[in-house]
Design a protein around this nucleic acid. Structure first.
Lengths: 384, 384
DNA sequence: CTGAAAGCGCTTACAG
DNA sequence: CTGAAAGCGCTTACAG
């Protein structure tokens, strides 16, 4: 008899419809739905009944406008850049790492009723910054992966909305979350130097200016210097955090007739994948002739041949921590004891597999679980 | 002198601020920003000037409420389920496939000014459905990965908001997008049967009831039957679309002393990864003793040893097509010639690598590009 | 405990 | 071409 009967997409019911059916005011409907000020049992009952009958779910744009809270966090991921953009439009290469971080964010975000608005930006694009400011107006706060804004833009953005960066550096108005790059690479370097007695090294860097890459490279350089070993240097050891970048760098070095070092320590696992690929193509044995290591311990690292020795970052925890940090900044007007300005480092662990020259003693018949992927919920006594 | 000067997070400017600074009405501001009804050059000039000066960006919640368009699409991804949820909390295993699809969606979504609100749902959770309906009120439409709703729920949802499914089945009120599962697996099966002359097969299925898995299994079964070869059957050949599921299935079969078939065709690449892993653990040579194949051609497939023979799906195009289809349904009240009820299949291609027994002739020194990942923009004459 | 009303920040007929 | 005003669907002081 009414419009709701048709099969065509009818307008969803509004709070007015619920109020009418329940015979109460919209204020009462709002109150029972938001658990405010204990409505009378009967009122509550009638409202709930009407809500169920109509299948009412509040429109979140209206709610956001009124409550000044969207319950949405914007996430900006950097789109990989290419040396040769036409031949390698295969951007999916490095999907894994940022996506695992996002998964960690999402997990904790859900516990707070938040959703993630994900946006990939191409830094080559002229107004990448404008898109990020636009995203900010669809969200309550922003999490930025890996340097997507200039310091000036970042400052201007952080003045309008809470911002947390990943793999960046904290500013007075933003917080930063990262893995313990220096400590992780130091542990790996010591293993290579003292346990394996390797003497010549190269660090295949990530993209230019990346703080993660800088810290990792510095740790390796320091340990190599301390032990009197040799570190090859130069722009030819610049990668891109991608498999293609790693493969191309090695291919070029070999083509140029450069003597390879005993160890190639890569800025991340993706690069190492490309390096392994290129070395295999040229018949160079890993780890027999050249040892290769990564950083991150993305899930595929253990599926490579040889299995990749790497430094495990608590990838999902990075995302979870970034979200929790941002969440603590949202809706807070007092710039008092909040997270702004903090630099949060999460511990890493060395994972020795085969590509460094180790022989794993015990291989479990199934995949080793990636222990505590996420921190316990600090806001809940009991997991639900 | 005014509040904007401080370093504390000040309120972003509103359209009223812009109107005041420009000396015009908010209606005029709105008009120049939305390109409506050609405002006078001088008006336009003053507004733009004020906008730039204040760094004004419209609040999207307010815009959404007023314009009845959020420019947000909700994407629901299914969270993997585990046989043993405690030991394998390593959910990142199958991240790649859905995330690549999402990347394809995002790419075209950006061209329309849309963002993606991504939500992972745990089907074991009691009210997974409620969360999806909640997501719907934050979006203009929903894209559902791989069966996350019962047919009844789906119908109720589709009545309120446009819905496109991936790897599902179309309904009178929803559209579905999928790869050509049957055709792809048929081509692979014929290659295995007629080129390699294999005679015993097993199909490691995906999770129960998955239309993708069903279609792929059926294609294999049909070809095997047509050639008089043998297909092993039974619940022990049930996987989960995850590497862990594949590894466990094989480990269990071997423990049970079951004779392995000459070929294990897996429902997807992730499962094949786990199968390769488990076979290697038991010293079984691939493809010498057992050939293994996948489906999807996710980027790591070529990095496995042996390189994985598989059926390539146009993964990002699946996402892009899903978005375009949904987009065509948004804001459309006439249920006329729209996409509802359509089932859109995208072509697949066989990728012969090593795991089936082939020897790749030419390996390019770099990664072969994944040709046209995305369809051209039908709404733009010239790529920008 | 509950309702009438104001207000969140926009867009868009409606007049002029 | 432009402004005053209504309205999008909620939440939340403010009265009662």
């Amino acid at each position: 008899m009414n419009a709701d009967q048709g099969t065509s997409p009818s307008q969803p019911p509004t709070i007015y419809d619920v109020a009418r059916v329940a015979g109460v005011s919209i204020a009462s409907v709002s109150r029972v739905l938001n658990g405010q000020r204990n409505p009378r049992a009967e009122t509550r009952e009638r409202v709930l009944q009407a809500v169920a009958q109509l299948g009412f779910v509040p429109d979140q744009a209206a709610r956001a406008l009124s409550a000044r809270l969207k319950e949405v966090v914007g996430v900006v991921v950097r789109r990989p850049q290419w040396y040769d953009s036409s031949a390698f439009a295969d951007e999916d290469e490095n999907l894994q790492f940022p996506d695992m971080i996002n998964r960690g964010m999402e997990f904790v975000a859900q516990r707070h009723g938040f959703d993630l608005l994900i946006r990939t930006v191409d830094l080559d694009e002229p107004d990448a910054g404008r898109h990020i400011f636009g995203l900010a107006r669809k969200s309550d706060g922003l999490i930025l992966h890996d340097r997507v804004l200039s310091p000036e833009q970042l400052d201007r953005l952080a003045r309008q909305v809470p911002v947390v960066t990943l793999a960046g550096a904290p500013t007075p108005t933003t917080a930063n979350v990262h893995g313990d790059n220096y400590g992780g690479m130091r542990e790996l370097a010591r293993h290579l130097i003292h346990d394996h007695h390797y003497r010549t090294f190269a660090f295949l860097a990530g993209h230019e200016g990346s703080p993660d890459s800088l810290d990792r490279g510095q740790a390796l350089a320091d340990e190599v210097a301390a032990s009197g070993a040799t570190l090859l240097q130069g722009e030819q050891w610049r990668g891109s955090y991608q498999a293609t970048g790693g493969a191309q760098a090695i291919t070029r070095l070999i083509a140029d007739g450069v003597a390879l070092p005993r160890v190639i320590a890569c800025a991340n696992d993706q690069s190492a994948m490309g390096v392994l690929y290129a070395l295999a193509l040229h018949g160079i044995d890993v780890p027999g002739e050249v040892a290769v290591t990564g950083f991150d311990d993305i899930p595929v690292a253990r599926h490579l041949r040889p299995q990749l020795t790497t430094v495990r970052q608590p990838i999902q925890a990075l995302g979870a921590t970034a979200f929790e940090t941002l969440y603590s900044m949202i809706g807070r007007t007092d710039p008092g004891q909040d997270a702004r300005g903090r630099d949060i480092a999460l511990p890493t662990t060395l994972v020795r597999r085969e590509s460094c020259g180790c022989t794993p003693e015990d291989r479990s018949p199934v995949f080793p679980p990636r222990a505590p992927a996420l921190p316990a919920d600090p806001n809940t006594r009991q997991a639900d």
